[in-house]
Computed example of a mutant assay.
Amino acid sequence: MQNSIIIADDHPLMLRGLSDFLKSKGYNIIGSAKDGKEAYNLIVKLKPDIAILDIRMPYKTGLEVAEDCKKNGIPTKIILITFDKGEDLYDKAKELNIFGYILKEFAIEEIETCLTHVNNNESYFSEEIADYLNANTNSRPEILDMLSKTELKILHLISKNNTAKDIGDILSISNRTVEKHKSNIIKKLDIPPIQNSLLIWAKENQEFLN
């Protein structure tokens, strides 16, 4: 038997578009709501298998509806659709055992894949959200702020496989000055004094040195 679904979104075009699309694909849409309060009341009344909710709605957000469902032991599986890629919302969604979390701009493209996962009792989180969060996780190491502009330039040139002589020629400084800078960089970054350790560190953090 086809799972029953309700959809809630305070944007009429989005609500109608998603609803019409899923109906055309044969999904069993049993109700729709224009705000969070109406959505929660529908869930309580109709007991759908799945609720597709916009995160930001009047009266109750999608997360608040999910929270109320969890608190009151309502087994409806929640899928959230959102424009937000923020880590806080993503973490909160995972905390509430949300089954799906997809971006609005990809909602039509991803909703069927998401529903297939949910029907199999698996969660589905938009790849774009994961990519965005991963990109933000790989943020610039704060320790680089301790380096001077010249030291950062030297570290960048090291990451490009330049020798001390190459660096001296590029920056118009002596080899001895380059070696002194390298020694200072190693101290500031607390890099272990083993062979090629500075080159290895520079290579591993190359994306932050450009």
Rank of each mutant, 00 (worst) to 15 (best):
D131I: 07
E179G: 04
Y132T: 14
P192S: 09
K188P: 05
E207H: 00
D88G: 07
I167G: 10
E151D: 09
E95D: 12
N184W: 03
S159L: 03
D35H: 12
A66F: 04
K165V: 15
N162Y: 11
E127P: 06
Y59P: 04
K153G: 11
F208I: 01
G36W: 02
K60G: 07
P12V: 06
K23H: 09
F21Q: 01
N138C: 02
D9G: 02
P12T: 05
E128K: 12
N162K: 15
K203G: 02
E109V: 11
G73I: 13
D190C: 03
K104L: 02
P193W: 02
N121V: 04
K153I: 07
K25Y: 13
H156M: 09
R140I: 15
I194G: 10
Y59A: 06
I29D: 03
N72V: 11
K94W: 03
N134D: 11
S183F: 12
E67K: 14
E95M: 12
S148W: 10
P141V: 09
S126F: 00
A164F: 00
E112K: 02
A93R: 10
D10T: 01
L115A: 05
K94R: 15
D9W: 00
L198E: 08
K92Y: 13
M14S: 07
I74E: 12
A66Q: 05
F125E: 04
V118K: 06
T177S: 15
E112V: 11
K71V: 13
F106H: 09
I81L: 05
V65F: 11
I5Y: 00
C114F: 03
K71N: 13
A66P: 06
I102T: 07
E64P: 08
D10A: 02
S139I: 14
L42K: 13
N120T: 05
P48M: 00
E151L: 12
G62L: 03
A130P: 00
Y101P: 02
P75W: 04
M14N: 00
E112M: 01
D84C: 08
K77H: 05
L103A: 03
D35K: 10
Y59K: 15
M14C: 04
H181L: 07
L63E: 01
N210M: 04
P193I: 07
N121E: 11
S172R: 15
N161K: 14
I154C: 08
D131G: 01
V65G: 05
S148N: 10
N28L: 13
P48C: 10
L18H: 00
E207N: 05
S148L: 06
D88F: 13
E105W: 00
M14L: 07
I5W: 04
I200M: 01
C69S: 06
A107G: 01
I81K: 00
T113E: 13
I5Q: 04
D84H: 15
N205L: 05
T113W: 05
K149H: 11
T82G: 02
I55S: 06
S4C: 07
I78S: 09
N205E: 08
G31D: 02
A8M: 00
K47E: 10
Y59N: 15
N121G: 09
S159N: 08
T177C: 12
D68T: 06
L22V: 07
K25I: 02
K37L: 12
D190L: 04
V65R: 12
E38Q: 10
L155T: 09
H117L: 02
E110I: 02
D131L: 10
I143T: 05
N175S: 14
E109G: 05
V44H: 04
K70Q: 13
N138H: 11
E38M: 13
I6N: 05
G86A: 14
F83L: 11
